[in-house]
């Protein structure tokens, strides 16, 4: 905890003394030369990075707005769904054709 607090202080201190482009207020980030990055580009990229780094934070409530589920969907871990939740585990139907027993006349 002490280390975390120190790290936070150092990080924020470093940000505070870092050089800034004093006269430009951009909608979302600046290039190294001080030009403004397209705002929708910076925001969508940040969201993509964030969602991609939290692939298993929640099955039912992922950390995006509901309308963004499709755009930022993460492929499912089928093995986990099967091992913990039983999803995809095959359940045999009640009526099962009699099993074929191999014989000389019927090799199945």
């Amino acid at each position: 905890m002490r280390g975390l607090t120190l790290m936070t202080a150092v990080l924020l201190g470093a940000i505070a003394i870092a050089p800034t482009s004093a006269l430009t207020v951009c909608p979302d980030g600046k290039t190294f030369s001080g030009a403004c990055v397209k705002p929708e580009l910076g925001e969508s990229l940040r969201k993509q990075v964030f969602v991609a780094t939290q692939p298993k934070i929640s099955y039912t409530a992922p950390p995006v707005l509901p309308s963004e589920d499709g755009s930022y969907g993460i492929p499912r871990d089928y093995h986990e769904l099967s091992a913990i939740y039983g999803v995809g585990t095959f359940i045999r139907p009640a009526v099962i054709p009699p099993a074929c027993v191999p014989s000389r006349t019927n090799p199945c």
């Binding site: 990055v37 580009l41 990075v49 964030f50 934070i57 929640s58 039912t60």
Partner: peptide, 29 residues
């Protein structure tokens, strides 16, 4: 939602956009 219900999860992320140009950005996280 193929599965319902799980535990208390916490997910911190730290990242940065590297603004190569106005139209070209690299994100790391």
């Amino acid at each position: 939602t193929p599965a319902f219900g799980e535990g208390f999860n916490v997910g911190p992320t730290i990242g940065a956009n590297i603004n190569i140009s106005e139209s070209f950005v690299l994100g790391l996280g």
